[in-house]
Computed example of a mutant assay.
Amino acid sequence: VPHDQQRKVDALAPTHFDAPSGSHVPIRYDGEWPVLAIRVQELFGFDRHPSIANGTVPLTLELLSPAHRPIQTTRDLPGFWRGSWADVRTDMRGRYPKHVWPENPLLAIATSRAKPRGT
């Protein structure tokens, strides 16, 4: 594949997603749709759904707990924040009290860490 064509492929179908938390998370292309498995806290403050191919292909988000266990799968992140986030938050706050679980995740700062000590 010529170099310029390879650059186009890399731009349209990247191997990783740069999360708002600063993490460089791999994208899986092994199914019908590309999948991004990412801890939910790493998407705080993100108000649109992640996509590839110049915004034409939404990523299927496999939202994970701090222990990297699946919480929910969605292709509508804004809808998740507005809808089932409240139930997920309630459940996760009890299971993972050392992590941040804001009422409004759109106003929170994305993080890949637990709460700082003493808070």
Rank of each mutant, 00 (worst) to 15 (best):
H24C: 08
R48L: 08
L12V: 00
H99D: 07
G79F: 07
W101L: 12
D76H: 13
L59Q: 05
P34G: 10
R28W: 00
I38L: 11
A13T: 11
H99W: 15
P70C: 06
H24M: 03
P58I: 06
A37R: 12
L63F: 10
T56A: 14
G22D: 06
R82C: 01
P34E: 09
G83C: 05
D47L: 01
K98Y: 14
D47C: 02
Q41P: 08
V25G: 02
T56C: 03
I38Y: 11
P66Q: 11
F80N: 01
G79T: 06
E62Y: 07
R75P: 01
I27G: 03
H16Y: 03
S23M: 06
R93D: 08
G83N: 09
N54W: 01
R28K: 12
R89G: 04
R48M: 05
F17E: 00
L12G: 00
W81Q: 00
W81M: 03
F46I: 01
L64A: 06
G83F: 08
K98D: 15
M92I: 06
G55H: 06
W85P: 07
Y29R: 15
S65Y: 09
A86F: 05
I27E: 02
V25T: 06
Y96I: 03
V88L: 04
G45A: 08
H16M: 00
P58D: 11
D87H: 13
S51G: 14
S23E: 13
L64Y: 10
W85L: 05
W33N: 13
E42T: 03
T56R: 14
A86L: 10
